[in-house]
Write a protein that binds this DNA or RNA. Structure first.
Length: 461
RNA sequence: UCCUCGGUAGCUCAGUCGGUAGAGCGGGUGACUGUUAAUCACCAUGUCGGCGGUUCGAGCCCGUCCCGGGGAGCCA
């Protein structure tokens, strides 16, 4: 089998090459009477390579079929380009049409709207923008693993199908093998005893509870995988299936947790700036002109930390005209978060120690009996990118809280066991991977940073 | 789910006062050229989101449903 060259490697070549094989998809073609120029892309990088094909070479008879979108293979010499605009070009000695793209190929040599490209999500990675997006996505996912691996944090594969609702709230997707046309009933309720697991099953909304048990075994762990929320959310920041990074660290408190969140975000921002420069540049030029400034800002100084109580004071003392008046005890509204991160601090900000009545049962109660050791990392234009807390490690307090919220301790027996045996302070958080991608690329709709977005009433592809 | 703005050619959009529809890009044909989203000439674009209503007549007005954008809530 002949060695096939990636266009990314060819464009970085130190010297000319003779008789190589290159394969890819035609982006555009410019014909002259005696020869044609082909802009070829193989997905290995943003840039195309220019191919020059003279009409005398074998395979040229198919040139008119090598339209935008067609797959071709060619033998060529890599030569210094005599034309302007590129260092290297391929002088083809043989052309072969592998897969034609008829004239109804929907991608054209012009800008398309994101809304249109979403309707052809199976083809959009062939555009510059989405090719860049999904290369960055792949690299960044790997960088997350590298970050944790290099710090001795173990990757735990938490289950996708679960029997308990981690948050004690939030809509979940049911998982069932029951025949929905004739659901078995008992006392006019669904008899899940007849279902696959013999009990009600759902898709996970978070791997947190699972990963907590593992941090109390392996010390530092994380989970990174898809999570599912059946909320009827119709916003540019929510999807029903998204990827979440959830580290959980034993012997760590809220301060350690905030430090880890900041370190992770800074590491990943540095990573894309250093390793995805070409793809990133596309977003900086065509999507968000303020992108590089923002990334430098994030990569720079520490994120300010402010308690929820102080944050509410800042909001109340500002002259900003909010639709919802900031008030202690109520959750921060989007407009409040945006004010804090975009106007007041003008950088990512960590808000911590929230009122316990607006937070989940597993968060550690503070001595003031009013707040819990929770923290959110808020970033400009996106809002919450990380939500986490130090966990309640005291068995009695945790049980009491579960009961207060109307949950059944029996459902959490295995979770409570971890507080019974060798319990220790620990903390963790969840970072939305798609929101990180939005932050890093400046793309404003979450549907455009995941290959095939799942949203209410939308399950194509 | 709520508020709001939209849905017209393959794509991006215009369409005045209600009188059966237009541009650019893309596509086709030809010319020309080491071209760079090439250029020039010519040609064809259509269930005006669906259904119902008002009207002599609806892309335009009314009702309803579907889909999309922006915002809100929920959160990652």
């Amino acid at each position: 089998m002949t060695h096939k060259h990636r266009i990314a490697d060819l464009l970085n070549s130190e010297s000319p090459l003779e008789q190589i094989t290159v394969q890819g998809w035609v982006r555009t073609r410019r014909d002259s009477r005696d020869f044609s120029f082909i802009e070829l892309n193989d997905g290995s990088c943003l840039a195309n390579i220019q191919v020059i094909a003279e009409q005398t070479i074998p395979g040229f008879e198919s040139i008119t079929l090598m339209t935008t979108g067609s797959a071709i293979s060619l033998r060529a010499d890599l030569i210094a380009s005599p034309g302007k605009g590129q260092r290297w070009e391929l002088k083809a000695t043989r052309l072969e049409l592998l897969g034609a793209a008829p004239e109804d190929f929907p991608l054209q040599k012009k800008r398309h709207s994101d809304e249109f490209l979403r309707t052809i999500a199976h083809l959009r990675p062939r555009t510059n923008k989405y090719g860049a997006m999904f290369r960055i996505r792949a690299r960044l996912a790997q960088a997350i693993h590298d970050f944790f691996n290099s710090r001795g944090v173990y990757w735990i594969h938490t289950p996708v199908i679960t029997g308990a609702d981690c948050e004690g709230a939030g809509e979940m997707f049911h998982v069932t093998t029951l025949d929905l046309a004739k659901v078995p009933l008992q006392d006019s309720k669904v008899n899940f005893d007849k279902d696959f697991f013999g009990k009600e099953a759902n898709l996970t909304v978070s791997g947190q509870l699972s990963v907590e048990t593992f941090c109390l075994s392996l010390g530092k762990v994380y989970t990174f995988g898809p999570t599912f929320r059946a909320e009827n959310s119709n916003t540019s920041r929510h999807i029903a299936e998204f990827w979440m990074v959830e580290p959980e660290v034993a012997f760590a408190d809220l301060n350690d947790n905030m430090a880890l969140g900041q370190e992770l975000i800074k590491y990943l921002v540095h990573f894309v700036m250093n390793n995805c420069a070409d793809d990133l540049d596309l977003f900086a030029r065509f999507v968000d002109p303020t992108l590089m400034q923002r990334l430098c800002n994030i990569a720079g100084e520490d994120f300010p930390r402010v308690s929820y109580t102080d944050a509410v004071s800042i909001l109340q003392q500002s002259n900003h005209n909010f639709v919802y008046r900031p008030e202690w005890g109520k959750d921060l509204q989007s407009e409040h978060e945006r004010f804090l991160t975009e106007e007041y601090f003008q950088r990512p900000v960590i808000v911590h120690d929230y009122p316990k009545q607006i937070k989940a049962f597993y968060m550690r109660q503070n001595d003031d009996d009013k707040t819990v050791a929770a923290m959110d990392v808020l970033v400009p234009s996106i809002g919450e990118i990380i939500g986490g807390s130090q966990r309640e490690e005291r068995l009695h307090k945790l049980e009491t809280r579960i009961i207060e919220l109307g949950l059944k301790p029996a459902d959490y027996w295995w979770y409570l066991d971890t507080r019974k045996y060798g319990s220790v302070q620990h903390a963790g958080f969840g970072m939305g991977f798609e929101r990180l991608l939005m932050l890093v690329t400046g793309v404003s709709n979450i549907r455009d940073v995941i290959p095939f977005p799942r949203t209410p009433r939308q399950l194509d592809f």
